Simulated scan of single mutants.
Amino acid sequence: MGGLVVDEHHRGAGIGKQIMSECEKWAWMNGFNKIRVRSSGKREAAHRFYVAIGYEEKKWQKVFDKLL
């Protein structure tokens, strides 16, 4: 999965949880034992969502750019 975004007008309706549940089922049935999710450091609501559905934060990372 390249990304998960639920339209702001539909958040809280269980759509994201349903999508993640189906992804987890697919992964398990296809021999995977882990799913890793990456989320921008600024997306605090998304972080709370992932924790609420059982994901655990593993590391914090920053990205640095320099315009040339």
Rank of each mutant, 00 (worst) to 15 (best):
E56F: 01
R48K: 03
E24K: 10
G16P: 03
A27S: 06
Q18D: 09
E56R: 10
G3W: 01
I35M: 01
G41D: 03
Q61K: 09
V37I: 06
L67S: 13
G3I: 06
K17M: 11
V6T: 03
S39R: 14
K42T: 14
H47D: 05
W26E: 13
G54E: 03
Q18V: 11
A46Q: 02
K42D: 13
L4V: 02
M20H: 05
I53N: 14
E24Q: 06
K58M: 01
E22N: 15
K62C: 09
I15H: 11
A46G: 07
I53F: 12
A45I: 02
F64C: 06
V37N: 08
A13C: 07
V5A: 11
I53T: 07
A46L: 03
E57R: 06
G41E: 02
Q18C: 14
K62V: 05
R38A: 08
H9L: 12
H9C: 08
L67Q: 11
A27F: 06
G16V: 02
R48P: 02
K66I: 00
G41Y: 09
H10I: 05
S40K: 05
K66V: 00
V5G: 10
F49R: 03
A46F: 02
W60M: 10
A13G: 09
K42P: 11
G2K: 07
A45V: 03
Q61M: 04
K42C: 13
G31E: 05
V63C: 15
K62P: 13
Q61T: 01
F49A: 03
V51I: 11
G54N: 04
K59A: 11
M1R: 15
K59Q: 08
K42A: 13
W60S: 14
K66P: 06
E22M: 14
R36F: 14
Y55I: 00
A27M: 05
F32N: 09
L4E: 01
A45M: 09
M1I: 00
M20G: 05
G12V: 08
F64L: 02
I15L: 15
R11M: 09
S21C: 12
I53M: 08
I19K: 15
K34R: 11
L4A: 03
Y55V: 00
K58F: 00
M1Y: 07
V63I: 10
G14Q: 12
G2C: 01
K66C: 07
G14I: 00
K42N: 14
E56Y: 02
E57F: 02
H9N: 12
H47C: 04
K59E: 15
V63R: 13
H9V: 12
I35N: 05
R36Y: 11
K62I: 07
E57I: 02
E44M: 01
D65M: 12
E22G: 15
A46E: 01
K62N: 09
K66E: 06
Q61F: 04
I53Q: 11
N30Q: 05
V63N: 15
R48A: 04
E8H: 15
K34H: 07
R38E: 03
D7S: 14
C23W: 02
G31S: 07
K62L: 07
L68T: 05
K42S: 15
G41L: 08
Q18H: 11
V51W: 10
M1P: 04
H10R: 12
H10D: 08
